[in-house]
Write a protein that binds this DNA or RNA. Sequence first.
RNA 1: GCGUCCGUAGCUCAGCUGGAUAGAGCACUCGCCUUCUAAGCGAGCGGUCUCAGGUUCGAAUCCUGACGGGCGUACCA
Length: 565
Amino acid sequence: MQIRKVLEEKILEAFEHIAVDVDRVQVLPASKPEFGDYQYNGAMALAKRLKRNPKEIAQSLVESIQKGDMIESLEVAGPGFINIKLSKYWLSTRVTQALEDTRLGVSIKNDPIKVVIDYSSPNMAKQMHVGHLRSTIIGDTLANLLQFMGESVIRQNHIGDWGTQFGMLIAYLEELGEGTEGTLKDLEQFYKDAKKRFDEDEFFANRAREYVVKLQSGDVYCLNLWKNFIDKSLSHCEEIYQRLGVNLTREDVRAESDYNDELANIVKELQEKGLLVESRGAKCVFVENSDTPLIVQKSDGGYLYATTDLAAIKFRVQKLGAKRILYVVDSRQSEHFKLVFKVARAAGYAPKDIKLEHVKFGMMLDKSGRPFKTRDGGTVKLIDLLQEAVNRAKEAIRQKDEYSKEEILKIAEIVGIGAVKYADLSINRESDYVFDWDKMLSLDGNTSLYQQYAYARIQSIIRRYGKEPTGTVAIEDELERKLVLKLLELEDTLILASNESAPHYLTNYLYSLTTLFMKFYENNPILKDDIPKELKESRLMIAKATAETIKLVLGIMGIKTVDRL
RNA sequence: GCGUCCGUAGCUCAGCUGGAUAGAGCACUCGCCUUCUAAGCGAGCGGUCUCAGGUUCGAAUCCUGACGGGCGUACCA
């Protein structure tokens, strides 16, 4: 249910009726509950252009808006605000209808476009660390969201599987010989050991360099060693994806190395288009308003990240048919993407109608505001972080109740991992955020546990009720009205979040929904004996709709729910 | 230096692209469990939205400048 859109259309119609030209109408949620449910503030802005009194405009608009069974009242307030209040009957009917639909009344886009989302993109030479967390879960949430909205989503895991360090790594892998399964388990250590060998043993270092060259020239022996290495490394990532509930599979992997054969051609095409300039020995493309060029070929002939990115854009547009490409990459790379996008446009790889967006995000900081590191200053491995979250969740559950061992493990996994994801997604992605265990696993405020708790409470009620709730919603009081209205704001929220590529709109929505539910729960008993049947059913349905909505939105974020907590 | 993002309660954060008296959580003070999960709810406390100008009916939001901070600044990814 797109409430805002429907209201906006009604206002547009009214404008037509009073013969006023407007290009865009924006309805906003009421800034205060006393004002109603929604407001339209456009009359004031129009007053000047029309040289009319804003109050008059608002008044004639109000008189022309078709209320139907949707709108209960329209009011002109202050200098020309229009306050809109929806009818209880309409809200009740709509929420009852939404419950009959597995999508909870959210429509599917009927003109889907192909959207490529580039996210996670770990480096195969190293273990995944906290630096990959945000890209992975923000990207995955956006992918899930757009997919749910009906877009045709193509996930791309642009893994870093190429570069000089791989010569060293495969040389070391070879040296250790067969039975290296266990050794590769800790990639971090493997990398360190290999580096140590490289620094200490000239002979080894030379072989490593030789292997780089051999790899690049397609030597079969080296390629096999390398493939073996990448395969193992990728399995580690997949373990993490699975634990995180991230929908990335091998089919989504399009590695850097997959573009190798195209790189020379990219440089050639840039040359042919007259974009290439040689500067300080390197092949560069200069763009307007930037002193630093995009370097596509080093003076030693090697290609760079930028070259691969251009090849990737070409591939995504020409082969995958992408109309919109999202790069979920940290904000430090914004200059890089600005340049790459400009060059891609200039070279014709991304025509004007293709949207290129850098979905940037800030860094993870510790409590003292420094980049999030281990005590000894190293990077925090993602697997360790997740395990700690699960352990902490386990502690919290143990204190509360007696569960079987399996139950505790299962709940702790969902709650712990969910807490990490929710904490990350609930912050405006563009700002840096402070990673705080206590806050994350707290039950208060905008946290995943608060959602889980509300969900579990509802499940508990439904269990006690003993059967699947049926019936119709009939709003009884102000609290129910607010809660139902919030439930119906689901689609508006999803649209907002997907338009802005901003998952925190989802968590903000959930938080306000759950807060309203908790109040409803405290004040409006459902299963008490003296509650009449119809009221009981209505309240049950409202509770059920709340639970379904929580589940759906958490699901988009790749967070599972538990029936008991 | 230049570019870029930011500065909102003691702390962590919202504030939907210019709307009405700037909102939450934590912390602190109080109140509510023989009643559907108190991992909850309610009340209170807390603000010169960094500062100074400007734009206009109206600014935390837009513009200019200052101050403070993050990040990026030619062959790493």
